[in-house]
Computed example of a mutant assay.
Amino acid sequence: MRTTYEFGEGCSMAMPNGAVLCLIVVMFAGHLVASPLIDANYDLFHGIAVENNVCRGEQFTSIDDFIGSPIADGGKLVDEARGDLDRDRIPDWVGLLQRERKEELETGITLNIETLQLFVLIGESPAGFRCVEKSKEAPFREGLVLYEGMEIKNSRLIVQINTKTLATAKAVHYTFGLNEGSWELVGLRKFELDTGSDTSIETVTNLVTGQVTVKRQRGKERPLVQRYRSRVSRSHSLEDFDFSDDYGSL
């Protein structure tokens, strides 16, 4: 039986097992986001262990062939991007799969957890695709986190994640690309807005060179711009991407 939602004073979510959780409902970037208020008894997301599917080197005749394969594991395609990621002039494909996993709590309650996972397929000549990388399969919407979209631009994969609280909003753009033979995070752009003080901070980081640009602005005042170089202590692979808004922090 599918989970049902009732939006009103005290917003509640009726679970098939009769459990009731409180929800926050907000409108952010044109999307309606419902997020459970997590407490000690109903921790929906911490501790869930989902096996990450292996895909490197697997060949597929088409995208439909991939979607129907054991690697896709019954995932529903909810978004996709096409473009040339490896600069060979053959279209490549990145797909976002959504699954429902079951998580059993210590209380004996079983919950359906929504997960997301990215797959990167490189187009090959004369036809077909080869899977080269995937992200973690990660529980989603922990707190007010919203997947906004992705695109392939200048042989880079750009993924946007938004977050929202009562007083702040954040948009994070993750840029992935081939770096010395591995699929890594090569760029990071964060825009944070404090709605109460009307203060924004935009931070753009090049994770290959370590160059960081920070722009701070209050309302319509003149922005303050700071540039510096930071030591990149470690790489962040696409394989470790978990759709959280703090992934890729230096």
Results as ranks from 00 to 15, higher is better:
residue 162 N to M: 01
residue 209 T to F: 06
residue 155 S to G: 02
residue 8 G to T: 06
residue 72 A to Y: 01
residue 204 V to I: 10
residue 88 D to V: 05
residue 129 F to E: 06
residue 183 W to I: 04
residue 189 R to W: 04
residue 39 D to W: 06
residue 242 D to W: 04
residue 18 G to V: 11
residue 86 D to Q: 03
residue 102 K to G: 12
residue 73 D to Q: 14
residue 157 L to A: 10
residue 144 L to Y: 00
residue 132 V to Q: 14
residue 94 V to M: 09
residue 153 K to Y: 11
residue 39 D to A: 07
residue 188 L to K: 11
residue 208 V to E: 12
residue 235 S to H: 15
residue 146 L to F: 06
residue 132 V to Y: 10
residue 16 P to T: 01
residue 33 V to A: 13
residue 115 T to H: 01
residue 46 H to E: 13
residue 222 R to A: 12
residue 112 N to F: 02
residue 70 P to F: 05
residue 86 D to T: 12
residue 225 V to S: 06
residue 175 T to I: 01
residue 6 E to V: 00
residue 5 Y to D: 11
residue 35 S to A: 11
residue 67 I to E: 14
residue 68 G to N: 15
residue 124 E to N: 10
residue 246 D to S: 11
residue 195 T to I: 09
residue 197 S to Q: 14
residue 128 G to Y: 06
residue 147 Y to I: 05
residue 40 A to P: 05
residue 36 P to N: 02
residue 208 V to M: 06
residue 124 E to K: 15
residue 91 P to G: 08
residue 146 L to Q: 00
residue 43 D to M: 07
residue 39 D to Q: 04
residue 9 E to Y: 04
residue 10 G to Y: 03
residue 207 L to Q: 03
residue 227 R to D: 11
residue 41 N to P: 00
residue 186 V to D: 03
residue 78 V to I: 15
residue 231 R to A: 10
residue 205 T to A: 13
residue 102 K to V: 05
residue 141 R to L: 04
residue 195 T to L: 12
residue 116 L to I: 00
residue 181 G to Y: 07
residue 80 E to R: 15
residue 17 N to D: 15
residue 106 E to H: 07
residue 138 A to V: 06
residue 32 L to E: 13
residue 200 S to G: 09
residue 47 G to N: 08
residue 236 H to R: 07
residue 108 G to V: 06
residue 159 V to H: 02
residue 217 Q to I: 04
residue 36 P to G: 04
residue 227 R to F: 01
residue 174 Y to A: 00
residue 194 D to P: 08
residue 163 T to N: 04
residue 147 Y to M: 05
residue 247 Y to N: 12
residue 159 V to P: 02
residue 193 L to A: 11
residue 2 R to Q: 10
residue 158 I to H: 14
residue 133 E to A: 15
residue 111 L to M: 11
residue 196 G to E: 13
residue 150 M to N: 00
residue 166 L to A: 14
residue 106 E to L: 10
residue 81 A to T: 08
residue 18 G to N: 12
residue 190 K to W: 05
